[in-house]
Write a protein that binds this DNA or RNA. Structure first.
Lengths: 352, 352
DNA sequence: CGGCGGATTGCAGGCGCTTGCATCGATGAT
DNA sequence: ATCATCGATGCAAGCGCCTGCAATCCGCCG
């Protein structure tokens, strides 16, 4: 009979609760309760109802259910990009735990300003989701207000929003560790490839990593009694091409860095390429350190700061579920650990 | 007044059609019509209604609307992975055109068999979407049946489903072109890194590329009066690590290929790495040709077959929209073009 | 000046499911 | 044996929006 379920279901109009009720010889109310597992239905009845539902290939109408309960069984996930490694990975992590819990994921890509504006103007999420997940996208005040007006739990990854759960890593700490590694290797002239203001979409991550860079680099300069080189702070737009270009700029400087810390592996990849093209060897001539532990970092022998991306997503998803099931957890940022992964792209500076 | 919209909306219960109606001094029916732009509403009235709606920060309830109309304003997108370059890119392409059209995207990742089974068992898409988009995932007969029972337009990318629109590339043709390039360079011993049976998830793409490889390679062997080397057909699971391993196997063969055609750039990357580690130079010692034109292919100087991934997604999205607006287009597969991108990883075999 | 056709609007009955409350037995206590 | 009790069900009133149909209102024609 199991097989017949599909057949029945496939033909004609989808059945309603009433149809199942009739077949099972009970009322629609009972079917509703039985199907959702609410207590107050005799076990025998429940079994009968389940059988009837299966036989008809019945599936509840989310719209009707949602209208009646106010719950939707879906969460909105807002991302600035979907085709960048980090975000794709994050989404993947979130999706897994959400789907396991039977809740669907509505995806919104707000990478472009016009799109972002339109999104918040129309706010298609309104009454369409039970919760919202914002990935690495710092909200403007008005946007935050709008999202809050949805009156659903909000969890963010990579940014802290007052009144919402957040999960992330210790960007500053991780970047400091990375920089210290370079310093310990003996580097004094360290450049940074990150993002220059104005920072697109208002990302804050690049800022935090930049701050850490500056902190360490400036301290080193102070020790050496030298002025820090402001031109060492370059922007790479978090893309390979951007990193490539930034590295080019760096190589054109009269005062050349012996090591480069890139705020993302993708930019580090670009830097690697520019260096190779310039005939410079890594790490002999220049050390390069990335951030992310991108899938291909291993391939390119890139030393980097590994962050548990998929786990961040999964954790955020878990938080969301907890909220949805009425958990009264205190909202506090969850910080997941990072670790320095040393591969072949960093070494002591060569003595010239 | 524009700013006040948010404020009003942010406070208390969300308003209903009636509230707007009252404020505008008309009936709910009129508001409904005015808001949706259906004809039959005086321009002056419509303006008044729009103003009232804006003032209240009113947003329609998708659930109620959906219940009444049967339309949901969302489409389901089914993918086998979201964190692989190709798929992330595809999703990105789809999302853009869908969001521009104001329709939301429900994402389902069916990468693992248990998850896939559960998905089709529960079929959360039922009555939840206006259309379904399946990315590169060949459906089993029962699955196809189930999806069809949803009674909504179905469009696929990378696979052809009877009775559904599909968009894709000419895998066979593209692969033949790639192989011919290798042959024209003078290679006779060409290996393949793709996927070995049993092919996970039932993908067909690897098969098509393999067939093309075989066709060309065998022809070459025939010309040379030699037996084709079956061990040249290796599987790399479409991952970097898999490609790495496959290349290792290839290098262990007594009869060594002078060129390798990988069915994906990721696998080619892996192959590149193994070669580098083995001290072999590319392309001097071994030529490597990929497939996809991955973001990093350029970085790694990988020659490859470029396919317009984002465009495939966008095109599929467009098809979907056309279907949704009742277009009576004939369902026929759309084939987008590919092109060979020659970079530094292919060259004539060295004369030994 | 009455009657008409077309453009606007309002009415009311759903759409399919949920849930507070009433109903109905059957059970256990008295 | 009788009545209170408790579990299992059924009733019916929504949830918020859509839409066929009827009611109005106007400008015009005859």
């Amino acid at each position: 009979m199991a097989a017949s379920a599909c057949n029945e279901g496939a033909s004609g109009m989808p059945e309603k609760l009433d149809d199942v009720a009739r077949l099972a010889g009970v009322s629609a109310a009972t079917v509703s309760r039985a199907l959702r597992g609410v207590p107050g239905v005799a076990e025998s009845t429940r079994t009968r109802v389940l059988a009837a539902a299966a036989e008809l290939g019945y599936a509840i109408s989310p719209a009707a259910s949602s209208l009646a309960t106010g719950r939707t069984g879906t969460v909105g996930v807002i991302v600035p990009f979907v085709d960048r490694w980090y975000f794709a990975r994050l989404i993947s992590g979130v999706e897994r735990v959400l789907r396991d819990a039977g809740i669907s994921l509505l995806l919104y890509n707000l990478g472009d300003e016009p799109g972002r504006a339109r999104f918040f103007a129309g706010l298609p999420l309104r009454r369409r989701v039970d919760a919202v997940l914002v990935l690495s996208l710092p909200l403007k005040e008005t946007e935050r207000e709008l999202l809050r007006s949805l009156d659903v739990p909000l969890v963010t990854i990579g940014t802290e929003e007052p009144g919402g759960d957040s999960v992330g890593i210790d960007d500053h700490g991780a970047a400091v560790t990375a920089m210290r590694h370079l310093v310990q290797l003996g580097h004094r002239e360290i450049a940074f490839i990150g993002e220059r203001p104005p920072i697109p979409l208002g990302f804050t991550t690049p800022l935090r990593r930049l701050a850490a860079y500056r902190e360490v680099y400036h301290a080193v300069c102070r020790e050496d009694g030298r002025e820090p080189e402001p031109a060492f702070e370059t922007g790479g737009g978090f893309t390979v091409a951007g990193g490539e270009e930034a590295m080019g700029t760096l190589l054109g400087l009269p005062r050349r860095p012996t090591a480069v810390f890139a705020a993302s592996d993708e930019m580090a990849f670009g830097a690697l390429r520019t260096l190779r093209r310039a005939g410079l060897r890594v790490p002999e001539d220049v050390s390069v350190l990335g951030f992310d532990d991108h899938d291909l970092a291993d391939l390119l022998e890139l030393s980097t700061v590994a962050q548990p991306v998929a786990e961040l997503g999964a954790w955020a998803g878990g938080l969301l579920l907890a909220r949805l099931s009425g958990g009264k957890i205190a909202t506090s940022p969850s910080i997941l650990g990072t670790r320095l992964v040393l591969r072949g792209s960093t070494a002591p500076p060569s003595v010239r």
